[in-house]
């Protein structure tokens, strides 16, 4: 069955740039958190942002979305400032950023993804409900649609957020640690959905903390630690020296593990 996207007409050319960040500097008061970041992400990629805790990954996403005011620099989404492209961008915040005891159901939260399209005052109706139910089905939560969101497990909450991003029906997605607190099965389910989005020509940018799975899940990667260490296709950029630059002293451990993993992968294929 063909995917019927509400944006079929707006689908951009595959070679257009999803996100262009130039000279982005962000400071909280006098403490610089991001220094002079340049970044260019094409459409049709699934990109990981990796870096140690406090590297500024969340801040990078938040400043691209205009939630944090940068000290300097420019951000363009599909060639225009973010404020003009809101409708084309989907966002999955870190799970810990909301109050899950809020009196609201799974269906309610997923419908929130349509609010941007509705604009001020207009209430969601049957069409929004249907879109939300469809997305809930895609993430496998149909049985829980009427539950209060606090009664869900961490992985299920993460899938609620994902469903909400899906109903935004965007071209560029930003997701902050969507695998956090998620079991292996859910992680599989999520990555499958992200790949589908990528295969539809969208750009999916994901803050990720598990270096072990970067090569398996993603085709692009940005290594970040206050400064941009490297950014590009995984096989070019995800190297030991870049990892060492991003993770400092701890990199030795990571790179050894990675080397072993690669060794095993090769061994498994057989000579």
């Amino acid at each position: 069955m063909p995917e019927t996207s509400r944006r079929a007409d707006a689908n951009p050319k595959a070679d257009s740039t999803a996100v262009e960040v130039a000279d982005l500097t962000v400071a909280y008061r006098d403490k610089p958190v991001l220094w002079d970041i340049d970044l260019s992400v094409p459409m049709g990629v699934l990109m990981a942002i990796v870096g140690p805790n406090g590297a500024g990954k969340t801040t990078l996403i938040r400043s691209i979305l205009g939630l944090v005011r940068p000290t300097a620099g420019q951000v363009r989404i599909l060639g225009k400032p973010y404020a003009k492209q809101r409708r084309l961008v989907g966002y999955v915040p870190q799970r810990g950023s909301v109050d899950w005891d809020f009196p609201t159901t799974v269906l309610d939260v997923v419908i929130m993804g349509r609010y941007g399209e509705l604009g001020w005052i207009r209430r969601p109706g049957a069409a929004e409900r249907r879109a939300a139910e469809e997305a809930i089905e895609k993430v496998g939560l149909t049985d829980l649609a009427d539950r209060q969101v606090g009664q869900l497990s961490g992985g299920q909450q993460q899938r609620v957020f994902l469903a909400r991003a899906l109903v935004q029906d965007s071209l560029v997605y930003f997701m902050d640690e969507p695998f956090q607190g998620v079991d292996a099965t859910t992680e599989r389910a999520i990555i499958d959905i992200l790949r589908t989005l990528r295969d539809e020509g969208k750009a999916v940018i994901v803050v990720h903390h598990d270096l072990q799975t970067v090569e398996e899940y993603f085709d692009w990667v940005t290594l970040l630690n206050v400064q941009r260490i490297a950014s590009g296709p995984v096989d070019e950029v995800f190297t030991d020296s870049n990892l060492r630059a991003a993770y400092g002293g701890r990199a030795a451990l990571f790179s050894r593990e990675l080397a072993e993993q690669r060794e095993r992968a090769k061994g498994g294929d057989g000579p």
């Binding site: 950023s97 809020f102 609010y115 969601p124």
Partner: peptide
């Protein structure tokens, strides 16, 4: 009644609200 949706969204998830322009 008028701003029910906006109040709900900004109370539950201010980051998403801001990113959507509310």
């Amino acid at each position: 009644l008028l701003f029910y949706k906006e109040l709900k969204l900004t109370s539950f998830d201010p980051a998403l609200a801001a990113s959507l322009g509310f």
